[in-house]
Write a protein that binds this DNA or RNA. Structure first.
Lengths: 226, 226
DNA sequence: CCAAAAGTGTTAGGAGTACACCCATGG
DNA sequence: CCATGGGTGTACTCCTAACACTTTTGG
């Protein structure tokens, strides 16, 4: 056991998006050993002049082409045997893609990439199952005392869409009337003079997130993910 | 900017204890450059076979002699210029020392060590002020939805002591009757047939934390720090 | 008898939860 | 006319916050 170990530091990304009404996560199929053929979270080594968050944003842009999305450090995993190639400490981040930041996988450099349901997916390489579990737990917790939920939607959205975000992340159904009253009480939504329609039903009013209420809510202890 | 940077990984520790009725933190005066003479958080390099948490516990034992205390990973700081000696990524942890785990500094290997008030202390080396600020914020938040507060007290304590923990961490006064009612409602305290007395006043009944209630509270969403 | 901390209830307001029906539209 | 999601109000319970006086002890 040497005193100063040279360590590789990576960032791994749990990239969430709401697709087909369910919470999904971006996985990459490994083309080389170890765990060849297994699915894994996207990630990579940090570079010398680069902060951890910058590395995470670079990886995110490489995999999805998107920038300016919500990104938060999750946890750092450093068990000595977590990577058979050597000592690799990974700083995990999670990202939330909004509905309008077309989350299509462009030039993924690591074999095949695929969106899969966040709670139902193939076996993962390394300790990535643990990282994903942790991200799901954090996301659900944050939803209840911050406004991360909006980060999974486009700038304009209906109340039904917003409720489905909460239901997908929390994994349970919510009462429509109570949900809408709570949102109204927070006064963080601005109704717009636009209506949209999804299927064969009554058109729904579009809303947007009201940035003017940030301060007021922060004072009340409701934190913001910015 | 090379692709795979060799990085040193350290753990830094924010060690809290309640001393003289206030929240204090353990600092070490640096004996060598950089920041020679400045105060810093205790910490050190991880060793090759050692997990991050094991490294943190080892450092904690080296500085304080204590084991089996509450320890939680805080955040990982990795700005490329945070250490003038090179690329050092640090995984910060915070620890809570109970009142009876005599937090005397024994064989501190890095010059002088000292307890200082957590919110009023000398200028710190590196980015340690930021780490400490982050730890204070996390501790205050966790106090409100977990039972970390008990980790700062001995096994037997009075309700007054418990309230002073909360007040010291939250930085504000609490109403005695409301505080006691809330504790009674949670049913996590067991009154003992022992009374103690601090100054010239009525003796206070000792209580202990009731381990039997863990399950019940976890089911209700109140998390436990174990 | 004075100072100091322990101990003890009530009330009012706000938030959460449970619950059912009509509306606008497309097919 | 039917299926689909949009939109709306009330009653109950529980938690929170505000608020003051008596008790026990040491000096």
């Amino acid at each position: 056991m040497t005193l100063r170990t040279d360590v590789q530091v990576t960032v791994d990304l749990v990239i969430f998006a709401l697709r087909d009404g369910q919470l999904q996560v971006l996985l990459i199929q490994r083309g080389i050993p170890p765990f060849e053929g297994r699915w894994a979270l996207p990630g990579g080594f940090i570079r010398s002049g680069e902060s951890l968050e910058a590395a995470a944003r670079r990886e995110l842009a490489e995999e999805t082409g998107v920038r300016d999305v919500y990104l938060e450090q999750l946890y750092t995993f450093g068990e000595p045997d977590r990577d058979p190639r050597g000592r690799v400490v990974t700083v995990a981040y999670y990202a939330l893609l909004t509905g309008d930041a077309t989350p299509l996988v462009a030039g993924a450099d690591a074999g095949d990439a695929r969106w899969t349901p966040a709670r139902h997916h193939p076996r993962l390489a390394f300790d990535h199952q643990r990282i994903l579990d942790y991200a799901l737990e954090r996301l659900a917790n944050k939803l209840e005392y911050t406004t991360v939920g909006f980060q999974l939607l486009p700038g304009k959205f209906t109340l039904g869409q917003l409720q489905r975000v909460y239901e997908a992340v929390l994994g349970r159904a919510l009462d429509k009337r109570n949900f809408r009253r709570k949102m109204a009480l927070l006064k963080i939504l601005k109704p717009l003079d636009e209506w949209v329609q999804d299927g064969p039903s009554r058109p729904a009013q579009l809303h947007k997130f009201s940035a003017k209420e940030f301060e007021r809510l922060r004072d009340k202890g409701i934190l913001f993910p910015f």
